[in-house]
């Protein structure tokens, strides 16, 4: 009884926090979506989604985010695996190095990427000096994807690493003893066990990538528009309309929730089977 009370007391700040800063904003988003300027209920914001280019903008964002997420995964998975097999001290150092970019504000890192990728930027100055000619990089989708990968890569590596580090080496030995080739060990033991980390990594990279606006503005030169830019423009642009901005955010949230639910089911099945 006493422990229960203590537990509840300890949980209280967290609950208050969640209610204030997670639940309440969500409620506002839903409220704004289904009301018009005068505050009376309306579906106008939802029907308006059909009118413009919003589907196109959404598809563009999803494509970019998907590519960025897959690249992150391809870099992060081997990296996390290698880290988890290193000596303890080396592991700590490696993880510290991965976290290092997170200590800098990501607005600043994005801005620096602008000067790195520009036609007169760091890379192109080097390439020109080596007579490899300037390569146009800034303001292309590639530059934006590069920015997304750089900014969100740690969020992919960290969960995969922590799951990998938790895999008992004995399981791998046992697989080898029972006649698994290294490839089979990977496919039947390591991959299924690390799937949980992969899925949380994918979520943590995909969600911010799909909703980013700063990266696309700076590295894309504002020449194309992602859904994050559109939402931002309805909150701070010339034609401020919280209601429609909220509707766009809600659509994005619903889409993300659906894809997460699908992903989680996929992960659950695999993990459950191994146990």
């Amino acid at each position: 009884m006493k422990a229960g009370l203590l537990q509840r007391a300890a949980a209280a700040p967290h609950i208050v926090w969640s209610a204030l800063f997670i639940l309440a904003p969500m409620v506002f988003v839903v409220y704004y979506t289904f009301t018009d300027g005068s505050g009376s209920p309306s579906l106008e914001n939802i029907t308006r989604l059909n009118a413009g280019n919003y589907l196109m903008i959404l598809v563009n964002s999803l494509c970019m985010a998907l590519i960025a997420t897959v690249i992150c995964f391809l870099i992060a998975y081997p990296a996390a695996f290698i880290f988890s097999r290193m000596k303890k001290k080396a592991q700590r150092l490696a993880i510290l190095l991965i976290m290092l970019p997170l200590w800098m504000n990501f607005l600043i890192t994005t801005y620096s990427w602008m000067t790195i990728l520009e036609d007169t930027g760091v890379i192109n100055t080097l390439l020109s000096a080596l007579r490899l000619g300037p390569v146009h990089m800034i303001n292309t989708p590639g530059a934006v994807i590069c920015g997304m990968v750089f900014c969100f890569l740690p969020y992919m590596i960290l969960p995969i690493y922590s799951v990998m580090a938790g895999i008992d080496p004995k399981l791998i030995e046992a697989a080898a003893d029972l006649g698994c080739s290294p490839a089979q060990t990977f496919a039947k033991v390591i991959w299924p066990l690390s799937l949980g980390g992969v899925i949380s990594g994918i979520t943590m990279v995909f969600v911010p990538s799909v909703s980013t606006f700063y990266i696309s503005q700076k590295l894309g030169g504002g020449t194309f528009q992602l859904i994050g830019d559109t939402i931002e423009s309805y909150f701070t642009g010339t034609a401020v309309n919280y209601h429609f901005g909220a509707a766009l955010s809600l659509i994005l949230m619903v889409l993300i929730l659906i894809s997460m639910a699908v992903m989680n089911r996929f992960g659950e099945g695999e993990g459950g089977e191994i146990r």
Binding site: I57, C63, L66, F224, D229, S233, G237, T238, A239
Partner: peptide, 30 residues
């Protein structure tokens, strides 16, 4: 008028779309 300008501005930004390579890559990955 402000809303109309906002919409035209969006149209301007989105016109041309992304290079086809982006869509193909994304479709292949999916």
């Amino acid at each position: 008028t402000l809303e109309y300008i906002g919409r035209l501005w969006e149209d301007l930004k989105i016109s041309g779309g992304l290079p086809a390579g982006v869509y193909w890559t994304a479709a292949a990955l999916a």
